[in-house]
Amino acid sequence: MNTGNTVQDSVTALKKKRAWHWLEYVFWLAAAASVFLLPSQHALLTQIAIWSLFALSLDLLLGYAGIVSLGHAAYFGFGAYVAALFAINFTGEPITGLIVAGIAAGLLGLATSLLVLRGTDLTRLMVTLGIALVMYEIANQMSWLTGGADGLTGMPVNPVLGIFPIYFRPANSYAYVLIVCFVLFFVAKRIVHSPFGYSLRAIKGNPLRASSIGIPNNLRLIAVYTIAASYAGIAGALLAQTTPVVSLTYIDFQRSADVLLMLIIGGTGYLYGGVVGSALFLVAQKFIGNITPQYWEFWIGFALVVIALFARDRGVFSIFERILGALRNDKAKP
């Protein structure tokens, strides 16, 4: 075996990884079909899609670059407020709003990324948490601009690109959210399978070794943090456009914690973890909540403990994998 061949091999292997898995086609087709087949659940599905996008942005940080964040809602909420204020003061065209929110949240991410470069998991957890808490206080104090605890209302939502109305059209607004998510997932997939994405994983695996093979660790981490913040901002803007009010809960600790939970439930490092996690979490919350509106938290907590007991990196999927593995072993034994 000569070197040329190994390089060739690894190139094909990488290409294979970058190619779309058939399950991904099935998933997006099913998502598109749900626009037409599940009209009664559009509101819930819209929320799931937005949380998925939010969780995806965290996955870019956690799953690929290994940065834990307990304050990701800072960028989500910032994007939401920017989108709402932009719509009120300039134009209610949603796509423009998304772009503005994405850029604004990205800039905030860029500025704050310098704070999370150093330190252990715990340090990063606390610094990101601190950033989010400070942002929360700012949003609360500037109530002349943000409405504070009363919330910010009166945001106009014009038709998308002037032709596709989404205001009070659940089906249209779900379709709009879904298309935005699809585009951003597509981009994210390209990012993580680019040389840039692989360099991130190298840093995650061993920062010292990564820097010794010439990867500029800090620059790469700043870049991915900025991208993730921008994604989170767009997710926030989407929620602002599909809900009549932007309130402090967009930016609170609970939201940062929830998105982290959803991502861990679904599993990190394969982009779809957030989708799985948020779908499970929200569907469970809704249906258990309908049965016992007061104590659904108990059952969610119970589920989390069980998932944690049996799951590994891939969240709930690893439970299926282990069951399958056990079955195979049983077959192999006799």
Binding site: A257, L261, G301, A303, L304, V305, I307, A311
Partner: peptide, 8 residues
């Protein structure tokens, strides 16, 4: 996983 478990 510890986070998931303890939050639960």
């Amino acid at each position: 996983e510890q986070v998931l478990f303890t939050i639960g």
